[in-house]
Amino acid sequence: MRSAAATWSLLGVLALLALPWLLAQVLPAGQAQFWTANILGRAIVFGIIAMSLTFLATYGGFVSLAQMMIAGVAGYVLAIFVDGAVPRIVGGLGYSLAVPLGLVAATAMGLLVGAISVRTRDIYLLMITLALAMGVFRFVETNIAWFNGYEGIRNVVGPAMPGFDVRDPMVFYHVALGTAALLYFGVLYLVRSPFGLVLQGIRDNPRRVAALGYSVALHRIAAFGVAGFIAGCGGTLSTIYNIGISPGTIGLGATVNVLIMSVIGGLGHPVGAFIGSLIFTVFDTFAATIYDRDRFNTLIGLVFLVIVLVSPDGAIGIGARLRRLLAAGRR
């Protein structure tokens, strides 16, 4: 069962790799590029951030609302240290150093969030992670010296080498897809390792895991660190995608958006994060034709509400139910 899922995922990644060329064959040139960059590329980037939440929620039972903030930490550290960013805060580093620095910062922030919330569960954890996320948001928004306040930091264009320009939508798409695939299979591998099994044990019964001699606290903090790293990868990509970062990208709206993606897709398997982010991005892009461009939030809020009310396990749950229905029909 597990290996079948992995095989399907591998096939899915291969199909996604080829998708831009297929789109170019079917759609007019402008539209194909739009789909590649603005829908698929964006969906993958946000899918990575959403996956860090799905990972924590599915295997640890921690619904953390701090993941978008952690992604923002990676983005901000990158923007602060990289050369060419406007305004120059520290600068002086190339992308080959600034990006890893951002990832380290995001992982550290993940560990910190995990440590602060280590004694809480369920909705308490939700409240504390949300409070932390909003606290960092308000700090970043009001602090000029380090984060350039409300305006944020612009012109983080991404690395450029001969023959490899991240600003080319095709290149960006494949870099994002490659990162997402590595992280996705990394998560699938991790949850079957001893660490992952302990984590799932903590989700089901922390007292028993503690009685077996494992340190529940350390495993929890480590899981938040892993999720922090994943979110940091997403944050780095989204900062390069947006050519900069501003407090708005880690505000309440963005934080909730990540939650919406994870829930719409389904908290039950990491793939749900990407399904959810794709649905979200498609709605975001075509809200104008469906309802009203300016009222996108109402539309996505309603979709989210319906999903939570009708199918708490999201699109994955709907898929599973359909499969079961079909199987029952065949019998």
Binding site: L259, D294, T298
Partner: peptide, 22 residues
Amino acid sequence: QELRQALVTIGLSIIVADQLLA
């Protein structure tokens, strides 16, 4: 179902805030 209730109120708050803006 505490978590689900929290999610429902999050959905509500998005819709309400957006309609107030409208």
